[in-house]
């Protein structure tokens, strides 16, 4: 069967699996499914920017946190749907605001810049809340976990669809070209600065909404937690391990790490982190195209 048919089958099966989970599984499994859907939504969005343009963002938690904040601050003053859309819009607006200057910075500087930016926003929100005398916020009347689960799966679908769409559109090809050589890409007609900004903004929308949904899940908002840098790190880990060349990569990375963390996190959190560090090193050195790339090579060799 050819590649496109295989993909269609893969994603349909996955969707069916996600849909069936709350019907046949208990709360525990739904929790895992929720985590998987969340990381899938985050990593697919991240990959639209970082896998395609080569600008590796270590600060994607900033969009997550901003989205959380919007939902929490407007809680019970606006309908949920509006709040969630607002979360996405706020993240996109922030990306639009900082995108142009931020994306003039290249290579490793971009990586640490995004990290610094996320920390800056985190501490700013923290200081702001402190000035207002707020140390944390509680949400009352949050929806049931199955509703939250449904929302998150929808976001995962949206993010995956976005990644697949960008891959087939000329936009994606333009992004890949500028990843290879920005100057040459511009010379053959790719509007580099605009495309970079666009990718940056697109990669921010779903994470914002994910943050909003998760705020409802935890019913608790505290800036240090909401803008947690380990979220950014986890996204990168999943993308590096899974691979960034197609939408399959994040899926593989998410599944791998969710299973690994379920197995190890409760028993030996330090061991888990040590293994993660090792995995990152090994994959960066030996498997730059991740599990998806390795799988694709294996498939090609079999033909």
């Amino acid at each position: 069967m050819n590649s496109t048919a295989f993909d269609a089958l893969l994603w349909t099966a996955l969707l069916v699996g996600f849909a069936a989970l709350p019907i046949f599984g208990g709360d525990y499994l739904v929790g895992i499914g929720l985590a998987a859907a969340m990381w899938l939504a985050l990593t697919q969005s991240w990959s639209v920017l970082s896998s395609l343009t080569g600008y590796v963002s270590l600060g994607h938690t900033v969009f997550y946190g901003l989205g959380s904040y919007v939902v929490v601050v407007t809680w019970q003053q606006t309908p949920l749907a509006i709040a969630l859309l607002g979360a996405g819009a706020a993240s996109a607006a922030f990306a639009l605001l900082v995108g142009l200057p931020v994306m003039r910075v290249r290579g490793p500087y971009f990586v640490i810049l995004t990290f610094g930016l996320a920390e800056l926003v985190k501490y700013s929100v923290l200081a702001l809340e402190a000035e207002m005398g707020v140390s944390s916020r509680l949400l009352f009347g949050a929806p049931d976990i199955r509703v939250i689960y449904g929302l998150m799966v929808a976001l995962a679908v949206a993010a995956t669809a976005l990644r697949i769409l960008v891959d087939v559109l000329p936009f994606g090809h333009g992004l890949r070209s500028l990843r290879e050589n920005e100057e040459a890409a511009e010379t053959v007609g790719v509007p580099v600065a605009r495309y970079k900004l666009f990718a940056f903004v697109l990669s921010a929308i779903v994470p914002g909404m994910v943050g909003g949904v998760m705020a409802m899940r935890s019913t608790f908002f505290e800036p240090i937690q909401a803008f947690d840098p380990t979220i950014s790190v986890n996204i990168i880990l999943m993308a590096v391990i899974g691979g960034g060349e197609s939408a399959r990569g994040p899926l593989l990375g998410v599944l791998f790490l969710v299973i690994l963390s379920e197995w190890l996190w409760a028993k030996a959190p330090q061991a888990y982190m040590i293994i993660l560090g090792l995995l990152l090193i090994v994959f960066v050195l030996k498997f730059p195209r991740g599990l998806a790339g390795w799988l694709a090579d294996w498939q090609r060799a079999r033909r």
Binding site: H173, G174, S177, V188, G189, V190
Partner: peptide, 8 residues
């Protein structure tokens, strides 16, 4: 392809 898609 990049040139063909993005050029004149």
């Amino acid at each position: 392809l990049t040139a063909a898609m993005f050029g004149p």
